[in-house]
Design a protein around this nucleic acid. Structure first.
Length: 885
RNA sequence: GGAACGUUAGCUCAGCUGGGAGAGCAUUCGCUUGACGUGUGAAAGGUCACAGGUUCGAGCCCUGUACGUUCCACCA
């Protein structure tokens, strides 16, 4: 460990070194320890395709703050890390990666392709983890997991089998969201709805046997008409009542379709006649089921028209649309085309317009599973922060539909279902059965589909701890405590973890969810690759250090709120690190070798008690804020305490005593002890937020300490509360500020010292001042005074001395000789006006019986004090003006 | 179509259970003051979006309006 701090603060030089030290010493590791209480956070597993971005940086900073805080509080703090196989994201990446080498996924086949995926995972899977190290993340890397490792895969399989046994998982042909580019089904959560400009095509369907009569339908998707099996009208619609039951000619085909009546149709929208295409529209699918209509699929998996499409077969859906509209026009069946804005579903990953299709898929029945998950939040077992996220949560749980979990991908957990090669009988089991229970054949093939990547993430809080085995870790660390994540994955992940935890563990997976917002660029835009406006956290760390980045991300970050990223803010954060670095250097320069004895109570001076008391207050406040997960407020308080109180006031006051250490060693010793005590404690408070700089300072300050990481978290100490001294120091500050302002206004050069005469506002105050005389003398430097005297009355003070009116005293500075009379009169007149209005206001409030009777006594008292103060000020100003006149 | 969030200093944002509005950056005028110019002192800058209401008292609570952002939604 370094014996002294380097001359300049250089985060690069110390962050990697300290992180390596922490790793070597195993400080991040957590173990089952019955003597301690556990505190657990599971890290949202980053994708193995991922690179560290600002979202990760924020997410991990918040988690690390909580973990480090709890660890210092004496909890066995486990931060469980790992990575996600990210089924579709990875598969897409690997496909394009192979494409560059001229390799086609389908040509090399499933097994070879998977080998490439594992290669990818080997090469890139650890990249983001290494990047997280740079952030200072104190996760237990010994326990790093992967959603497709043996244990997690076992958990996935077990969950599938259990849910299937209970009838919660079923296979069926339903209409699902199909991505024609990724060529897989996707869940509702993966579809984003975007308003797009489109058209309403009004098309005539001729009525069979009634020459010249038509039904006019309006559609946004004319190409699907090849799959129409009916036209529906509202049963209450008088206009079309006679049509119900009649047959229509479906144009461009040789089929006829019936007119049916269904409540689903809105009389007042469009023409009131809706073409029904059960195979290509979720609503029509439902209508079709009600009326027993045929489902005619007219599309291939790549969204081209299939062989049923006649002349349109093979055409892309949009090309077919164009061709069909043209043909309809030629036939005179196109009535009109009306521009129409409507919501279109797109695949969130590739932005392709989703195609609703009927496919055999696997589903999880949600109705029963979701209930306890909804209740857990409703009854407060799980707290969402901020609370408004509950609305989002319930919006999803209350409207949930069955979860389509099968994907037509290769990279992922294979569905444990087996089909007999002989009779097609399906068996759901961990292993292929030896003999078909139906036909007795012995050859089976596995279902080719894999599971939605969120199926495994949903198990993360317990699969990482060894479930389904009953490991000691699982017993000890589950349920976990806090989940930290962005509100954007509340549906994908949070809800699914909750119902999975409740279903398989019988317990909630965590009691608190702390949501954070998005990091946007300085113009408020989402950071994205396509915009090229992303800021690389690693670059920020490289330039300013991880501590500065962390401080930037947590400062002013209210739960659930988005924030913008500013380089200026990072610079300010780095400046803070530099500030405390230099303050520490100053303190260490003055500290003697070895231990410094704790001074006797009597030797502690007012300033010492004040700063200790202020520190004590901060300790309490920070604790309160942390417990409410107001991390941004907590760090702000530590920051302000260190910079504004400790550096700007206490250290400045202490300097004078250090300089006089030969004549008054007790005073100097008390100051030194206090400096060390306050700095050391502050570094503990700062550590969760800025782990590196606090570690370096702390370990240099206490060479016998290995780390601040495991030091005991400061607790409030009632014996260290000195409210009286805090009040006194505020008086000093008021005085110092008054002198400074007065001098600055008149441009008195810093080097020009003056005398300063102080008169207490009454006899009692005067008595107090005498007691504090020495401290006041100490402040001579801050006051730019050669001498500070305390007078019983202003009689002995030169008539033209300038007053500085404070709450309990008035100070006089004999500056008349350097003051411009005219300007002084103008200034005094302005000040008088202000004093009069303030006085009026305070008196007004006191004259209000409602205020006097109902407001807290302290408030009333404060107003009374103001009256006294401003009256004195007025008096001073008036006599001053008189002196000039 | 529903809902949430936001509107506070020139910019970006804090502001806990209502008790005379704060920070960072930027601006102006000073300072090589014994750790720090990545610093330091002083100052300027706000009818807390608008309109009502509750209250002795509202940035904060209630109602409405405007603008912005986002989420949800099967009107073809």
């Amino acid at each position: 460990m370094a014996k002294e701090l380097a001359k300049t603060y250089d985060p690069k030089g110390l962050e990697d070194r300290l992180y390596q030290k922490w790793l070597d010493k195993g400080y991040f590791h957590a173990d089952v320890d019955p003597a301690k209480k556990p505190f657990t956070i599971v890290m949202p597993p980053p994708n193995i395709t991922g690179q560290l971005h600002m979202g990760h940086a924020l997410d991990n900073t918040l988690q690390d703050i909580l973990i480090r805080w709890k660890r210092m509080q004496g909890y066995e703090a486990l931060w469980q890390p790992g990575t996600d196989h990210a089924a579709i994201a990875t598969e897409v990446k690997v496909i394009s990666h192979l494409k560059e080498q001229g390799i086609d996924k389908n040509e090399i086949g499933r097994e070879a392709f998977l080998a490439h995926c594992w290669d990818w995972r080997k090469e890139y899977g650890g990249r983001i983890i290494r990047q997280l190290h740079k952030m200072g993340s104190s996760a237990d890397w010994d326990r790093e997991r992967f959603t497709m490792d043996e244990g997690c895969s076992k958990a996935v399989q077990e969950v599938f089998l259990r849910l299937h046994d209970k009838g919660y998982i079923y296979r069926g042909a339903k209409i699902i969201n199909w991505c024609p580019v990724c060529k897989t089904s996707i869940s509702d959560a993966e579809v984003e709805h975007v308003d797009m400009d489109g058209f309403f095509w009004h098309i005539r369907y001729p009525i069979v046997g009634e020459e010249g009569r038509y039904v006019e339908i309006a559609t946004t998707r004319p190409e699907t008409m090849l799959g129409d099996t009916a036209v529906a009208v509202n049963p209450e619609d008088e206009r079309y009542k006679d049509l119900v039951g009649k047959e229509l000619v479906l144009p461009l085909t040789d089929r006829t379709i019936p007119v049916i009546a269904d409540e689903y149709v809105d009389k007042d929208f469009g023409t009131g006649c809706v073409k029904i295409t059960p195979a290509h529209d979720p609503n029509d699918f439902e209508v079709g089921k009600r009326h027993g209509l045929a489902q005619i699929n007219i599309m291939n998996d790549d969204a081209t028209i299939n062989e049923l499409g006649g002349k349109y077969a093979g055409m892309d859906r949009y090309a077919a649309r164009k061709a069909m509209v043209e043909d309809l026009e030629k036939l005179g069946l196109l009535v009109k085309v009306v521009p129409h804005l409507h919501a279109v579903g797109r695949h969130d990953r590739c932005k392709t317009v989703v195609e609703p299709l009927i496919k055999q898929q696997w589903f999880v029945r949600m109705d029963e599973l979701i209930k306890p998950a909804s209740d857990a939040v409703r009854n407060g077992d799980i707290r969402l922060i901020p609370k408004r996220m509950e609305k989002l949560y319930f919006n999803w749980t209350d409207n949930i539909r069955d979860w389509c979990i099968s994907r037509q991908l290769w990279w992922g957990h294979r569905i444990p279902a087996w089909y007999c090669d002989g009779c097609g009988e399906m068996v759901v089991a961990a292993e292929a059965p030896a003999v078909c229970p139906k036909c007795g054949k012995t050859h089976f093939h596995q279902d080719p589909d894999t599971l939605d990547t969120w199926f495994s993430s949903a198990l993360w809080p317990f699969s990482t701890l060894g479930w389904p085995e009953e490991t000691p870790e699982l017993k000890y660390f589950y349920p976990t405590d806090v989940l930290v994540t962005g509100y954007d994955i509340i549906f994908f992940w949070v809800i699914r973890m909750v119902f999975s935890g409740l279903e398989h563990m019988g317990k909630i997976p965590f009691h608190t969810v702390l949501f954070h917002g998005l990091i946007r660029d300085s113009q408020g835009r989402k950071m994205s690759k396509s915009l090229g406006n992303g800021i690389d956290p690693l670059e920020v760390i490289d330039q300013y250090g991880a501590d500065a980045l962390r401080l930037t991300l947590v400062t002013g970050n209210a739960p659930g709120n988005d924030m913008r990223f500013y380089w200026e803010q990072v610079e300010a954060s780095r400046n803070f690190a530099n500030k405390i670095w230099n303050a520490s250097r100053f303190i260490m320069m003055n500290l003697p070798e070895g231990e410094i004895g704790k001074p006797e109570e009597a030797h502690l001076e007012i300033a010492d008690r004040w700063i200790l008391s202020a520190l004590n207050t901060i300790i309490r406040d920070v604790e309160d804020n942390m417990e409410r997960y107001e991390l941004g407020i907590a760090v702000q308080k530590v920051h302000d305490f260190l910079w504004d109180e400790f550096c700007d006031w206490y250290i400045e006051l202490a300097k004078l005593r250090l300089m006089r250490k030969d004549e008054d060693p007790e005073s100097a010793n008390a100051a030194l002890w206090t400096l060390k005590e306050v700095l050391g404690t502050s570094m503990k408070l700062l550590h969760p937020f800025m782990p590196f700089v606090s570690e370096e300072i702390y370990c240099t300050l206490y060479p016998e300490a290995d780390t601040v990481m495991t030091a005991a978290w400061p607790v409030e100490d009632p014996a260290r509360s000195f409210p009286e001294d805090e009040k006194e120091i505020e008086l000093y500050k008021e005085l110092v500020r008054g002198v400074r302002a007065l001098r600055a206004e008149r441009g008195v050069p810093h080097g020009r010292k003056t005398t300063l005469h102080i008169v207490g506002k009454d006899a009692e105050a005067n008595e107090e001042l005498r007691i504090l005389q020495r401290s006041l003398r100490d402040m001579g430097r801050l006051l730019a005074a050669t001498e500070v005297t305390i007078e019983d009355s202003k009689d002995a003070i030169p008539q033209d001395a300038l007053p500085i009116v404070c709450s309990k005293m008035t100070a006089y500075v004999p500056l008349s000789e350097i003051v411009d009379k005219e300007a002084e009169i103008a200034r005094l007149t302005a000040e008088r006006e202000k004093a009069v209005s303030e006085l009026k206001r305070a008196e007004g409030m006191l004259a209000n019986p409602n205020f006097v009777n109902r407001a807290p006594a302290a408030k009333v008292e404060a107003e009374k004090e103001k009256v006294v103060k401003y009256r004195a000020m007025l008096q001073e100003i008036d006599s001053q003006l008189q002196a000039f006149a």
